[in-house]
Nucleic acid binder design. Structure first.
Length: 290
DNA sequence: TTGGGTCAAGGAGTC
DNA sequence: GACTCCTTGACCCAA
């Protein structure tokens, strides 16, 4: 069975898990608390909407607790929001919804600059801690490998060394291919070295295939999920024809969907649909609408 | 209320 | 070296 999901917000309700603020406003504790509560309320609302529409997958916005990993964050967020996170985890499990998070392009554990690598690890630990409090072991921390730097082999080794001791992060981590630097095959190699699963993103793969068909890439990445005893979680997105290569379109091209379903060969999978139209992009793929 | 400029952060490609 | 783009949008201010 294929389950589908979408990231960060629901345009229909509407609700978001990604409200944030400017760094300059971070000292306003009440403002921060209020935003986090809004994001958590948005998450509960989205989980309930998803359950009504048989959506079994959702990506939480990285700003669920904005600036949580920043040294200037004004209070102990685990103490303040721990109960709410535990409750939202119970709700997600009750509704059968798998959660993920996806730190962005600034997170570079393999960076040559030590302070960049360290800041990246702090952000990854934040995500792991959120998942610990949520309490669902099938949660996924999706990460790109980042820059290639001076030498790819050395970079892979440095990336692995940095993360290998981060047991709290590795519990949830999955590595994803990108559209320019690291191919699906390279991601599988690095993920295997870390003992974590690999994610193949269909649009990134189309732009950076490394000589493999989508089916061949999935044949490499899907089995890596056996280390997690979990369902594989490939990503599906389509090219916006009016924009530069890699830009996500509002909806999913049904040809892209068919190609993925075909390549999956009836295997179980949780497909994260990355489209500007969020949950609305799921409708042509079989989402039940009222 | 709307639109445009800007926002913590890195890296790579282009000129 | 400056600029632009990626992309999880959202804030914030001016009009």
């Amino acid at each position: 069975m294929i389950r589908i999901g979408y990231p960060t917000q629901n345009l229909t309700i509407p609700a978001s898990t990604n409200r944030t603020l400017r760094l300059a406003s971070l000292s306003d504790e009440e403002k921060v608390r209020g935003l986090v509560r809004e994001n958590l309320a948005g998450l509960r609302k989205i989980l309930e909407w998803n359950a009504r529409h048989q959506v079994g997958l959702f990506r939480i916005g990285q700003s669920l607790i904005p600036f949580a990993s920043h040294p200037a964050f004004p209070y102990d967020w685990e103490v303040e929001h721990g109960d709410a996170l535990r409750e939202v985890g119970e709700l997600a499990r009750k509704l059968g919804i798998r959660l993920s998070m996806h730190p962005g392009q600034y997170i570079q554990p393999g960076s040559l600059k030590l302070e960049v690598a360290e800041r990246s690890l702090v952000e990854l630990r934040y995500v792991a801690r959120v998942f610990d409090l949520i309490g669902s072991r099938d949660s996924v921390l999706v990460l790109h490998m980042g820059g290639a730097y001076e030498d790819r082999t050395t970079t892979v080794r440095r990336f692995v060394e940095k993360l290998l001791s981060e047991s709290s992060v590795l519990r949830y981590l999955a590595l994803e291919n990108d559209e320019r630097i690291w191919t699906a095959e390279e991601i599988v190699t690095t993920a295997t070295a870390l003992g974590v699963p690999a994610i193949t993103d269909t649009l990134h793969h189309a732009l950076n295939a490394g000589g493999l068909s989508l089916r061949e890439a999935l044949e490499l990445s899907l089995p890596t999920w056996s280390v997690r005893d979990g369902r594989p979680k490939p990503h599906l997105s389509s090219q916006d024809p009016a924009k530069q290569p890699g830009a996500h379109s509002y909806t999913i091209d049904l040809g892209d969907w068919d190609a993925l379903v075909d390549a999956l060969e009836r295997q179980d999978a949780d497909v994260m649909v990355e489209a500007k139209g969020k949950e609305q992009a799921l409708i042509p793929l079989g989402l039940v609408v009222e």
